[in-house]
Every structure is written in structure tokens, then in C-alpha cells.
Design a protein around this nucleic acid. Structure first.
Length: 221
DNA sequence: TCCTGATCATTT
DNA sequence: AAATGATCAGGA
């Protein structure tokens, strides 16, 4: 089932059809080998779900389903029903951000419509036995978007002022910035305190687990 | 136990 | 190097 869904309804239908299935069962038709753990296959679950739902974007910086304007996010859930991890959204721009507004940002576009797909994530469950949960299609409410926008503006102000190296994961109520790189030696261009170019660790935007937990709780029930 | 900072694979 | 897909791992 690797053709692109023609509508949101079709995408949701496919997601509902794989709900309850194990990764082992889903891996067979996709011709994917199930890893013993995800240490060296951190994106495996996401790619497995992309195959079944017909995502087409690959590694391009656009939504997973650009034709219907939907982003797919798998989210690992623990025994307590809550997310085990934060959710990576996209790379944080560190240059060329003069005049960039929340409304025109890449992150807002990605979060404008999200298909959340909860998956069993406890490490003690063998990967092949972990199951997919029920999908949730979501767009941020005005309140939720205001929270995101506020965090984004504070973080982007720091970046614009050359204070990217002062940003830690503690900043941001629902949206945070953390390293997003192969390792701590990776470098990318950014602004220094006096506006001069500097090299710094690449960063990404992540949604705090407390925020995604709230979303799932609020819209599932 | 939680959560921040670090890390892994792949593709372009 | 930068974008995608994320989870790992250890110190607070």
C-alpha cells in the first residue's frame, strides 16, 4: 500500500486499518527486516508507517503528504498511556531569518495538520510485537497555536540576537530547541552576538512530551 | 524517575 | 552538510 492517499479521509482509513497490528506483521508486506532494538534504527517505526500509509515526501523538507497537507508523526507510548519521548518537528533555522514570522514558518506549516499515530514504545516489548494504536488527526486550536507561537517567537528572538548558544532544552513551555545532529562535533552557520557568522551545533524544534500527552488526552476522549 | 543533550541511519 | 525518520543514555 505505497501509493499516496488522495484525501485525508483515505489516509485516515488506511491508518485505522493498521491500528492494532504488530510491527512484525506490518514489516512483511513492506519487505522490511525487524531490528532487535531501535538503537541503530531510530527512524525504523516512522518509515514502516510511512510505507503503509503511502507517504511520498522522502527526506524533502515538506509535509509527509503534501497533496493533502498532512504531516505524519508516530509517537511512542508507555504503559501509563503517555508519550515516552518528545516529538521532533523540524530543523530550527539559524540564519536568513530576518523578517520571518510564525505564520510563514516551516514549523507552523508542519504542525497545521498532523496525523498522530501512537505506537507501543516500551523497550522491554520486542520490536516485532509492538503494536500500532488508533490514529488521531489534529490541528492546533487557537490556544494551542498561541502557546506554540509564543515559544517560537522567544526562541527565534534569541537566535536573531546571536544568543543561540544560550538556548537550552529548558526554554519553551511546549516547544523546545535541542541538538539535532550526527554528534556534538557537527557544525552549521549561525549569528554571533555582534551579528558576525559563527559555527554552532545544528538544532531542531521538539514538542515536549507533556504537550503531546495533553493533545492525545484532550482529543482522544 | 525524568528530561536534557547526544546520537544513529539514510538520502540528497 | 543538511534534511528526513527519531530514540538513546546518563546526570540531575
Amino acid at each position: 500500500m505505497n501509493t499516496a492517499p488522495k484525501s485525508e479521509a483515505e489516509l485516515l482509513e488506511r491508518a485505522r486499518q493498521i491500528a492494532g497490528m504488530s510491527f512484525g506483521d506490518l514489516a512483511k508486506p513492506a519487505n522490511m527486516r525487524v531490528p532487535d532494538n531501535l538503537k541503530r534504527d531510530k527512524g525504523w517505526v516512522g518509515q514502516l508507517l510511512e510505507w503503509h500509509l503511502g507517504a511520498t515526501a522522502g527526506s524533502k523538507p515538506v509535509q509527509d503528504f503534501p497533496e493533502i497537507g498532512v504531516e505524519l508523526k508516530s509517537i511512542p507510548i508507555g504503559y501509563n498511556g503517555k508519550p515516552l519521548e518528545s516529538t521532533f518537528v523540524c530543523v530550527a533555522p539559524l540564519t536568513g531569518i530576518t523578517g520571518l514570522t510564525w505564520e510563514a514558518s516551516h514549523i507552523r506549516n508542519k504542525l497545521s495538520r498532523v496525523l498522530w499515530l501512537p505506537v507501543e514504545g516500551e523497550r522491554e516489548i520486542p520490536v516485532a510485537e509492538r503494536r500500532v494504536g488508533s490514529p488521531l488527526i489534529w490541528s492546533p486550536s487557537k490556544q494551542e497555536e498561541a502557546l506554540l507561537k509564543n515559544d517560537w517567537e522567544e526562541l527565534m528572538d534569541l537566535i536573531a540576537l546571536g544568543d543561540v548558544n544560550q538556548i537550552t532544552a529548558r526554554s519553551g513551555e511546549v516547544l523546545q530547541i535541542r541538538p539535532k545532529a550526527a554528534n556534538s562535533r557537527a557544525k552549521t552557520e549561525a549569528y554571533g552576538t555582534n551579528g558576525q557568522p559563527i559555527k554552532t551545533l545544528p538544532r531542531g524544534f521538539y514538542l515536549r512530551a507533556s504537550f503531546t500527552s495533553y493533545i492525545l488526552e484532550t482529543y482522544f476522549a
